[in-house]
Amino acid sequence: MGRATRNLFVGVCVVLWLAPLYLLAVNVLTPAGAYSGSPDWSPQGFALWENLSTAWNEAKIGSGVGSSMTYALVCGAVAVFVAAMASFAVVVLPIPKPAFWFWLIYSGTLFPVQMFLGPLFGMYADFNLYDTRLGLMLVYVAWNIPFAFFLIRNQLTTMPPEVTEAAMLDGASFRRIFWRIHLPLLAPSLGAAFIFQFSAVWNDLLFGITLSRSSDVQPVMATLAALDSAYAATGPPVILAGALIVSLPTLLLFLMFRGVFLRGVASSVR
């Protein structure tokens, strides 16, 4: 493949990727009452702030943003910390059959989450966890642990065992070794894992619409889906304004911490 062909292929991919973003940016400016019913390729007015305000307040996107921010921050951090402890146990601690424990935890990424929804819904109904923030947080933490464990464990296997041996010769306990030595050294993979898990929780729709129904409990993607339902009273410009609001946190997170993300991924795939 020549350079011209490669450049043409890359150019076509860029256009295909940017076209939906351009349509979103143009149509979110259109006043809701002036929307023609089909996407406009040129601005038909400027009602950005009105559409954003309607999506935030009247369509209750703001409530969903607050809920998802809580879920993503808390559940992402808890899942990463638990995954770090599990990785330390599998790689450093002298436990029997570490490969078995690795595959047992990592298998959580191998099965589609749809197969768990039926039993999970019934269990949540029996234990009064349905439509509660605690219920969603529990499932988000459990859902995020396996992949975070995979990333962190991969970096942990690259650390020389002499580090642990030297600390033990100095009289350090495994708890002290974990907190004072391994946890600081794992900072890149911890950061990358947190960004992955924050994005996963933030973008979740399936658990949100299955395990909750109240507007003050549902995550933002479920709120956005309700805004785009056949019974919604808002027009497409307001829906696009809601989509714009929803897309900003993960984009800003990646742009702000892209260096940490790249270092963490690189250290986990050596």
Rank of each mutant, 00 (worst) to 15 (best):
I239P: 00
L206M: 14
S38Y: 13
K60V: 06
L244T: 01
L21H: 08
V12M: 15
L211H: 05
S215N: 09
A166E: 12
S36A: 15
D204Q: 08
S42P: 00
R6M: 10
N57A: 03
A192N: 09
F257I: 08
G64C: 11
D204E: 15
M137Y: 10
P43Y: 02
G37L: 06
L262N: 13
L120I: 02
G76A: 10
I177T: 04
T164K: 09
E58A: 03
W202P: 08
S63K: 07
T30N: 13
A167S: 15
G135K: 13
G171Y: 06
A99Q: 12
S212C: 09
F257S: 13
E162H: 07
T210P: 12
T250L: 04
T250A: 10
A83R: 10
Q44K: 14
V15D: 05
L251W: 05
L156Y: 14
A79E: 08
R213C: 02
A225R: 07
T30V: 08
G62V: 03
W41C: 12
M123D: 05
E58G: 00
E165H: 11
P146Q: 10
G33M: 08
A47K: 10
W202F: 11
A243P: 00
G33P: 05
F100T: 05
L206K: 03
R213Q: 14
D204A: 07
P146R: 05
R270S: 12
C13K: 03
F116A: 12
T54M: 01
V28I: 12
V65W: 09
S173N: 08
V238T: 03
Y130M: 15
M115C: 04
A99R: 15
A83G: 02
G242V: 00
A192K: 03
M221H: 01
V269A: 14
R263T: 04
R3H: 04
S38R: 15
P160A: 12
F147E: 06
L48M: 11
R3S: 10
N144D: 10
W179S: 12
I177E: 01
T30L: 01
M123V: 13
L18A: 14
A125H: 12
E58T: 03
L185W: 04
G191A: 15
F257C: 14
V265R: 06
V220C: 06
R270M: 04
V201D: 05
G33W: 09
L129F: 14
L185N: 08
V217S: 11
L255A: 13
A47M: 09
P161S: 11
F194K: 09
A77N: 07
I95L: 15
